[in-house]
Amino acid sequence: MARVLINIPKEARKGEVIEIKVLISHPMESGQRRTDSGQVIPRKIINKFVCTWNGDEVLSVDLFPAIAANPFLSFFAVADVSGTISMTWVDDDGATQTELASITVT
């Protein structure tokens, strides 16, 4: 389980635009580097990230090896109803991780 920092406001007014910021601790090994003995270090990156709000999609991202280590993402959503913001990402080895945050919309 990667360490994660998520920054989402706890409350928002209806119709307000909120910023969602995520920082995931991950090496994002690009598969382009070699060890001292010349062997390719196998690629291991997060290749998919999906954010949903009560099940409705906010943003989905395809990530490539050109994304820096410890990927950071910032994007915007429109507050409509209270509920849960869910963020899921998929690793190259198939492992998935989901983080949840709740938000109250008034």
Binding site: V58, V61, D80
Partner: peptide, 8 residues
């Protein structure tokens, strides 16, 4: 990046 119905 693919923006869904909830995107701002």
């Amino acid at each position: 990046f693919y923006f869904g119905p909830r995107a701002g």
